Amino acid sequence: MLERKQLKGRTQVTFVLPEDTPRGPVSVVGDFNHWNPAAHPLRPQGDGTRIATVALPAHSAHSFRYLAAGDYWFNDEKADGREGPNSRIHT
């Protein structure tokens, strides 16, 4: 799931997944962090979810995917679209 909050000239995007699906560590990787899995790991929250928040330029589009343990790549079903193997988000 994706949550957006408009800021001055930027959009704060929060990537949200269930705490245990998939099991193990998960990162959001994309063109906004040079596909670096260490840049935005999802962190557990008290409500049974885990999140990572990224500030992106307003009125832009970005490719991203999630990377879980065991080199398991997957997309966000709630993304704005797809481009090849990647999810897309529009801010």
Rank of each mutant, 00 (worst) to 15 (best):
M1N: 14
L2E: 08
E3F: 13
R4L: 02
R4P: 04
Q6T: 03
G9Q: 11
R10P: 02
T11V: 15
Q12R: 15
V13R: 01
P18W: 05
P18A: 06
P22D: 02
P22N: 06
P22R: 02
P22Q: 02
R23Q: 09
G24I: 00
V28R: 09
V29F: 01
G30Q: 07
N33P: 11
H34K: 13
H34G: 09
H34P: 01
W35N: 10
P37L: 10
P37T: 07
P37G: 12
A38H: 12
A38Y: 10
A38W: 06
A39N: 10
A39T: 05
H40V: 00
H40C: 05
H40A: 13
L42G: 07
R43Y: 03
G46S: 15
G46N: 13
G48D: 05
R50F: 00
I51E: 11
I51F: 04
A52T: 06
A52G: 03
A52H: 05
V54S: 08
V54L: 04
L56G: 08
P57W: 09
H59Y: 14
S60P: 14
S60G: 15
H62P: 06
S63V: 12
S63T: 12
R65Y: 02
R65Q: 14
Y66P: 01
G70I: 00
G70T: 00
G70Q: 00
D71R: 01
F74Q: 08
N75H: 11
N75S: 15
D76Y: 10
E77P: 10
E77W: 15
K78Y: 08
D80P: 14
R82I: 14
G84M: 08
G84E: 10
G84R: 11
P85T: 13
N86M: 10
R88W: 03
I89H: 08
H90D: 11
